[in-house]
Each structure stands twice: as C-alpha cells, then as structure tokens.
Simulated assay, not measured.
Amino acid sequence: MRLPLVIGLAAVAGIAAGLAVVYVRGGADGNVGPVASGDCSAAVEAASLLKPLVKGEVAGFQIADRPVSLSHLAFQKGDGTAASLADFGGKTVLLNLWATWCVPCRREMPALDRLAESEAGADFAVVPVSIDTQDPGKPKAFLEQIGVKALPLFADPTTKIFSSLKSEAMAVGLPTTVLIDGKGCALGVMSGPAEWDSDDAKTLITAARKGA
C-alpha cells in the first residue's frame, strides 16, 4: 500500500504561492533508482508506533505503511561533490526538499535551522535538499540571507530526488519532508510546511530516534 496522496492537488496548483504547499512537476523518467524494500520491514512497525504523536504542528504527517528504503537517494554537497542518504547511515534523518521559489519552503527554513541547531548530533541530522534548477547560487544566497546557523547546503538541480519520491507517492509538491530511520527506511512524510522546531515535531522526531 502506498503512502496516501494529498487530495485535490489539481484544484490548488494555480493558487498563490503563499498556500501551504507549492506543487511542482517531475518527469516519470527522472528516478534516481528503484526504491527497494531492503530490510525495511521493521520500519513499518516502528512507524506505526508514532501514530499517537501525529498531532498539532505535525498533524499532517503521513505514517509509512509499507517498507521503503531511501538510502540510494543522491544529491550534491554545497561544493558540488556527490552525496547520498547512505552517507547518514546510523542517523535518523529529516530529509527536506525545497526550492527558493517556493514561499512555504522559505517560511519553514528558519524552523528547520533551529531544529538542526538544537537537535542535530551523532544520531540525528536535518538534510535540506534544494531542487532549484536555474541559478545554482540562489539556494546558498538565500540561506546566507536568512542567517542560518546549522543547516548544511545540499542540492539536486536535476530534481531526480523529487521524481524518485514522486514515483512512490511520497512527494506531491514542495516542501516535502521525509522522516527516515537509521537504516535509511522511510517512517513517514509531510506534504507541506510545518513548525519543525515545535514541541509536537520534536516529540515525534525524538520517538523516531529512540526507535532507530
């Protein structure tokens, strides 16, 4: 069974960018690679234990109901060198797909930065990946403009990371944020912005970290 899709996407695609989710198009041939179940069966059970914590600021978080490994998802570091989620093995990861043209993405970035500053460590990482396709300097300039203290710069100008998640019904627009366990297995996804440094979000993430 796939993660649930957000209802009524077509109806909101042309509405002003200030809405909760900004929708983007991704080609069906843009997959990074096959999304395999790997050894992620246990992650489905672990994800189900998070259900009581899906409320308040993270009420829109969709719990994973099938095993999906995301370790292969690839992107670039700020210096242009290759990176992937496999580099974060052993850590619970909050993967955030964003773009500078996405107003809700820009609005939630400070909260992600505060989360990274207060919570990132040996067992947890916030991994924001820009999918800007035009000027490669825009994401860096934006993060500098808002004065981020802890968020790293990652990018995928090919947007293949978005297309890969979209093909598995795990990405319908921006921002898209996926909570991933220490083995690279999806625990759930949020379509749209959230206050990621709120008590509700931190409680959800802490529970995921304990289960990693």
Rank of each mutant, 00 (worst) to 15 (best):
C102A: 10
G89Q: 15
P193Q: 02
V35I: 08
V32I: 09
A64Q: 12
C40P: 01
T203E: 04
D181F: 03
V32K: 00
L50G: 02
C105P: 05
M190F: 01
A11F: 15
V32E: 09
L95I: 09
L53K: 08
G38H: 12
T159R: 08
L112P: 00
D65A: 15
K166N: 08
R25H: 15
V32S: 03
A111S: 12
S41W: 13
F88M: 06
T133H: 14
V44F: 08
M190P: 00
A10L: 13
L73S: 01
K166E: 09
K77L: 04
A116P: 03
I161K: 00
A36N: 14
V54G: 10
A150P: 02
L5H: 05
L179T: 13
K149D: 07
D199P: 08
A116H: 09
V189W: 07
E168V: 04
G27F: 15
A155Q: 06
T203K: 06
A171S: 10
F61M: 00
D132I: 13
G182E: 04
P4E: 13
A150H: 03
T176D: 00
N31V: 12
A186D: 00
V103S: 09
G18Q: 12
V24C: 02
A10V: 14
D200M: 02
C40W: 09
D135V: 06
D29P: 05
F154N: 01
G60Q: 06
L115R: 04
P104Y: 05
A186Q: 07
G188F: 01
R66N: 14
T92K: 10
C105V: 14
A155E: 05
V127C: 01
V93I: 09
F61N: 02
D29C: 10
I180L: 00
P136H: 06
R209E: 12
V54T: 13
V44N: 06
S167Y: 11
A36Q: 14
D156I: 07
A122W: 11
V6M: 08
S191C: 10
G121T: 13
K149N: 14
P52H: 15
A208K: 07
A207V: 04
V24D: 05
R66P: 07
K91L: 03
A212P: 00
S164V: 10
V68Y: 12
F75S: 00
S48C: 08
F75Y: 07
S163T: 13
E45M: 15
N96R: 10
L85R: 04
S69F: 04
D200T: 12
G147L: 01
K55Y: 15
K166Y: 13
L95H: 15
V172M: 07
I15Q: 15
P110E: 06
K202F: 05
S71K: 11
E108I: 02
G192N: 03
Q62E: 14
C102F: 01
M1R: 15
A116W: 10
D65Q: 11
G80C: 13
I7R: 15
D199H: 08
